[in-house]
Nucleic acid binder design. Structure first.
Length: 795
DNA sequence: TTAGGGTTAG
């Protein structure tokens, strides 16, 4: 391990410069309790040595120390002259045995009866308030002890810091610390711990460093705190520095320090360092094994996590505890090992580990990742004890599986309860807004987020940006990006994706260049954004260039998403042979998405043979893919193969699949207007049809202009009851034209992809009316301006 | 008689 020590010469050294061997300062009680206060008269007696204690007092002391509170209470009741010392003893007994409410009540009785309290009383009372999370009472006790003159006592102050830390009231904890005459090691450790608890890792590290500078020699708890802070910042260099310091102080073979180091290296993504620490532990206990199992999951080595489990059971003959199981679950999720996951669930039940808040939340999360939402819901509903993390996990499970409505419902339920959402809640729920909400609702949640000050969090800002972009408001998405104080790689990937969704590939490329200029290293997601942008905008050559550069210049191996983008790009060129050979040469097994991309390409080219092939492959993977049936059916209809159309219709009927009812929406200031095909129930329907009629006439003989469809036998008109002239999107566009301000774009959102006729019509309408028309479908936003569309007529 | 402790869920 000595090899790690060279790091203290590094520029980033923050701690070691202040490390020396000065002995710790001895802190003495700074000030005697206020003896002028009337209640303190028999204080000195209370502190006398045990040799001069009465037999009854000695018995009470013994009872409390051995934890028999019943006995202690009966002795206390027998006392003719109980004093402060006796009361303190009893309060201590209750606190030590976790009867916090009894401890607090006893203190209140003490005060009520006029028994004087002293500086020994308060640490116990404060600890009880903290344990009960009783903020109100804790503050009251603080007020009382302040008035009584105990607020400068070292032990009382330390207990106050710990209590406020537990409440998450960092400002109060800091104030107590700042007003202390001479904070000691415990005070510093408590404050550092307090900042850890409120997740302010950098501040806690800064405090740790300040502590070193004042010459206080840290103990192992200081180092454990510092290591946790380093791991949560994922800052390897500082972690290594603390490691050196631990060696210097002789904590090399302290198992708690070793476990903390292991965990720090694991969270800093230095798995081999973590393994070396683990190997150096002479006698491994369950905590060390659990930490190692967690390390493997965290670093994407789930198989090794299970190997460790086996070694732990066999070599060290240790039994699993609930933490072991909690740590194994993410490995199951990574492997998609449903059976093993369920086996662990069963084991947890047999071992009597359930109910257990953390274990249940971890199970819920795993089932969510498996996509087995029914089981996740069962766990959630049956949990007796839930916290915010549990709620967030359930919301995330819904969102990740596309159950947005359920997610929104749960989110609303959360808001109406006593728990308050945090940044994780918000970042988890925003994709549901992005998918389902109107712009007005997006603005509402945005306002709410600003009120909570969560918009300052990069993670949240990224989600807000994406939400606006997917709801059609690219302008606001950009403004948020520009106003962000702290952009990470995800911010850049998101803004590039935002332009991709809106078919503005050139702008995506500019942003990619700017990102590189600023020294930000692109990752694999950056290329997903960039390649989809090239594909959506028809930048074929650029797309190929980036695809090649990704591998050559950045060493990023293409994932299935990258292949999907490239296939869309190839599809645009209409070269289906190239598309087929691309699929064959892929290093990964094609998914339903890949075949979907080929299906789309063959539809655009009107190649029904390849479409059939693609559809067959899709349905062999996902046999309930409605969109696939519909697309194929439409293609058969276009070439007049009605027997095939009927056949698909009957298959769908047999499988219980229903065609999604196409609908388009437009928002005015106050509400969302929804149109289906041939809609006549809208209040303004008459006006809408009048506008549609005027525009159709302006477009000229609509029939011939709009007949851009490649195959359109005359019989089609009679077979399709649903003529494109009455498609929802046109009604929505017309309503948008009359209900929004001139100069503003008309924004229409659609739940299915726009048909070719409507696409031609929308281009024409944009030209005739000189208005920008934006039509968003589940995949892209078409920006129609002056008779052209941003998608380059391929979607 | 008086303070804090390693692994654990989003």
């Amino acid at each position: 391990m000595g090899a790690l020590c060279h790091y203290h010469h590094h520029n980033h050294t923050i701690f070691l410069s202040s490390i020396n061997n000065t002995p710790s300062i001895h802190h003495r009680r700074s000030k005697k309790p206020n003896t002028a206060f009337p209640h303190s008269h028999n204080h000195s007696r209370a502190s006398s040595s045990s040799s001069s204690l009465s037999p009854l007092t000695k018995a009470l002391l013994h009872a409390v120390s051995s934890g028999s509170m019943q006995h202690a209470l009966s002795l206390f009741d027998k006392m003719p002259h109980s004093n402060t010392f006796h009361w303190n003893l009893l309060i201590r007994g209750y606190t030590d045995n976790a009867f916090f409410l009894s401890a607090l009540n006893l203190y209140l009785t003490m005060r009520f009866q006029g028994v004087p309290t002293d500086h020994f009383t308060y640490p116990f009372v404060l600890k009880s308030c903290a344990a009960l999370l009783n903020f109100r009472e804790g503050e009251k006790v603080h007020g009382t002890l302040f008035k009584l003159g105990f607020a400068e006592d070292l032990y009382v102050c330390n207990a106050l810091i710990a209590m406020y830390a537990k409440f998450g009231h960092i400002a109060s904890a800091l104030r107590v610390f700042d007003e202390m005459p001479l904070p000691d090691l415990v005070s510093w450790n408590s404050l550092v711990g307090a900042y850890l608890m409120v997740q302010q890792y950098f501040t806690s590290l800064r405090l740790f460093s300040q502590m070193l500078q004042t010459g206080i020699r840290p103990n192992k708890f200081s180092l454990i705190n510092a290591l946790e802070a380093c791991s949560l910042c994922s800052y390897q260099l500082w972690g290594k520095e603390v490691h050196c310091y631990a060696l210097k102080l002789g904590f090399e073979s302290d198992i708690m320090i070793q476990t903390s180091l292991l965990d720090m290296y694991s969270k800093c993504r230095l798995l081999s360092y973590a393994e070396r620490i683990f190997d150096s532990i002479s006698s491994r206990n369950i905590v060390a094994w659990n930490a190692m199992i967690s390390a493997y999951a965290l670093n994407g080595q789930p198989i090794r996590a299970f190997d460790s489990l086996e070694r732990m059971l066999k070599d060290d003959k240790l039994a699993v505890d609930n933490v072991t199981l909690i740590n194994l679950l993410p490995s199951c999720a990574q492997l998609g090992a449903v059976l093993q996951g369920k086996a662990i669930h069963g084991l947890a039940i047999r071992k009597g580990f359930l109910p257990h808040l953390v274990l249940e939340t971890a199970l819920l999360d795993m089932y969510g990742e498996f996509g087995i939402l029914k089981l996740a819901e069962v766990i959630f509903d049956q949990m007796v004890d839930k916290n915010l993390i549990t709620w967030n996990a359930m919301i995330a499970a819904y969102v990740q599986n596309g159950w947005y409505r359920k997610a929104l419902k749960l989110f609303e339920e959360l808001l109406s309860g006593y728990l308050k959402p945090d940044t994780v809640t918000i970042a988890s729920i925003l994709p549901a807004f992005a998918n389902l909400a109107s712009l007005r609702e997006c603005r509402q949640i945005h306002g709410y987020i600003m009120k909570l000050q969560f918009h300052l969090n990069t993670f949240v800002s990224n989600s807000i940006m994406y939400m606006y972009a997917s709801c059609g408001d690219l302008v606001t998405a950009c403004r948020i990006f520009n106003e962000m104080a702290c952009r990470d790689i995800i911010s850049w990937n998101t803004i590039i994706m935002a332009y991709a969704i809106h078919g503005m590939g050139r702008r995506s490329i500019e942003l990619f260049s700017e990102m590189k200029r600023r020294g930000i290293q692109p990752n694999d997601s950056t290329f997903v954004s960039l390649l989809s942008s090239c594909s959506n905008s028809g930048l074929v050559n650029e797309g190929w260039a980036y695809y090649n550069s990704m591998k050559l210049d950045y060493g990023i191996e293409p994932k299935i998403e990258h292949y999907g983008c490239m296939l869309d790009l190839i599809g645009r060129t209409g070269n289906l042979d190239q598309a087929l050979s691309f699929i064959e040469e892929m290093a990964l097994l094609p998914t339903a998405c890949i075949w979907g991309s080929l299906l789309n390409a063959s539809r655009n080219k009107g190649n029904i043979e390849i479409a059939e092939l693609a559809a067959e492959r899709i349905l062999s993977i996902k046999h309930d893919n409605t969109g696939c049936y519909i697309l194929l059916s439409n293609m058969y209809a276009e070439v007049g193969r009605w027997e095939k159309v009927e056949q698909i219709k009957s298959i769908m009927k047999k499988k219980g699949l229903e065609k999604t009812q196409p609908c388009s929406t437009v928002e005015t200031n106050f509400r969302l207007h929804r149109f289906t095909n041939k809609e006549r129930s809208h209040a303004e329907s008459e006006m809408v049809y009048e506008v549609l009629d005027i525009i159709s006439r302006k477009m000229g003989h609509s029939k011939c202009i709009l007949s851009a469809t490649k195959f359109k036998p005359s019989e089609l008109a009679s077979k399709t009851a649903n003529s494109p002239e009455n498609h929802s999107v046109r009604l929505a566009i017309c309503f948008g034209l009359i209900s929004t301000r001139l100069g503003e774009p008309v924004l229409v959102r659609k739940n299915t992809r726009i048909c070719e006729d409507c696409h031609v019509a929308a281009k024409k309408i944009s030209q005739i009316t000189k208005r920008e028309i934006i039509v968003g479908d589940p995949k892209v936003f078409h920006h129609f301006r002056d008779g052209h569309c941003s998608c380059g007529d391929y979607w």
